[in-house]
């Protein structure tokens, strides 16, 4: 993918996204189409499977990865709201494909105070479980330092969730994304237990497990994931590691990165810059 094409596609993507944004039905239709076109998990697991029947998309030509520059995150939570709208995620404080954590080090305390947008205090501040904001709850304390950390599915190279799935409904694609075939998932939630990052949850409407797909229905069309698209500070970086000029390739070349819970052996593909030892 050359730069010109990339820029055009991003522009087109922005337009398309803005058109879609807020229209859950349209987003759902795109998602449904993309999902319907995916090959079955058995074929994917067998290796050498044909790429998804999306015109001009060959999943063997891409290796997607995600970067988070926590130093840039301002905790505005547009990413969380965009994700919910784009992927029709339940509009409550208990189901998130992506979320943002806040770490606050108050003077005189050893451990940070951690919360996310789902914290009852923050939900009370926003006044609704459908809109998110971080309450200004530490204004009376002396804060030594504080930062935000966006979280999402790590699309691990050795995903524990895929290992434990009894039917193969959740699987790793050739382009490095962990997906769930909602027509094959039996809803046992063993994968929810196995994910060390809390990235998976049960969709009570569809009665299947759900999680971040890096907006697979968008990225296979050359668009960016919704959360990356709306991030006002560029804290979320996404791209193709096969393309040396892609944002993620440059991010990985220019930074020393961390991954979350490396000791699990899952080998995450979300790379962090600017996090701290207390981030898990």
């Amino acid at each position: 993918m050359d730069d010109e094409t990339s820029a055009d596609e991003v522009q087109a993507g922005r337009r398309a996204f803005l058109t879609c944004f807020g229209s859950a039905l349209a987003g759902g239709a795109v998602a449904a189409t993309a999902t319907a076109l995916l090959p079955g998990p058995a074929r994917a697991a067998a290796g050498g499977a044909p790429s998804p029947a999306i015109p001009d998309y060959d999943w063997k030509q891409h290796q997607w990865a995600f970067g988070v520059d926590a130093r840039k995150c301002i905790g505005c939570l547009r990413c969380v709201e965009a994700c919910k709208a784009e992927n029709e995620v339940a509009l409550d404080a208990h189901h998130f494909r992506t979320w943002v954590e806040r770490y606050v080090y108050v003077e005189g305390e050893d451990a940070p105070r951690i919360d996310s947008q789902a914290d009852p205090v923050n939900i009370a501040a926003s006044g609704s479980e459908q809109h998110y904001r971080f309450a200004n709850r530490y204004q009376d304390q002396k804060v030594e330092r504080a930062f935000f950390v966006p979280k999402l599915c790590n699309h691990c190279t050795h995903p524990a969730c895929v290992q434990v799935c009894p039917t193969g409904a959740t699987f790793k694609t050739d382009d490095g994304v962990v997906l769930i075939d909602h027509t094959y998932c039996i809803g046992c939630q063993y994968c929810v237990q196995a994910c060390p990052y809390g990235a998976r949850f049960f969709n009570v409407e569809k009665k299947v497990t759900e999680k971040c797909t890096w907006c697979y229905h968008r990225i296979t069309k050359g668009l960016l994931p919704a959360c990356v698209e709306v991030c006002p500070t560029g804290a979320r970086i996404f791209g193709d590691r096969r393309d040396k000029q892609s944002p993620i390739s440059r991010f990985l070349a220019e930074n020393r990165v961390d991954v979350l819970k490396p000791e699990t052996g899952n080998a995450p593909n979300v790379f962090y810059v600017g996090i701290d030892k207390d981030v898990r």
């Binding site: 058995a42 434990v164 039917t167 998932c185 039996i186 939630q189 009665k207 497990t209």
Partner: peptide, 20 residues
């Protein structure tokens, strides 16, 4: 199970790496 009617998916097309 969310979809008990699919329970046999695990028997007819088992994912061999899964204990379940």
């Amino acid at each position: 199970l969310g979809h008990p009617e699919r329970a046999f998916n695990a028997v007819f097309t088992p994912h061999w790496s899964s204990a379940m």
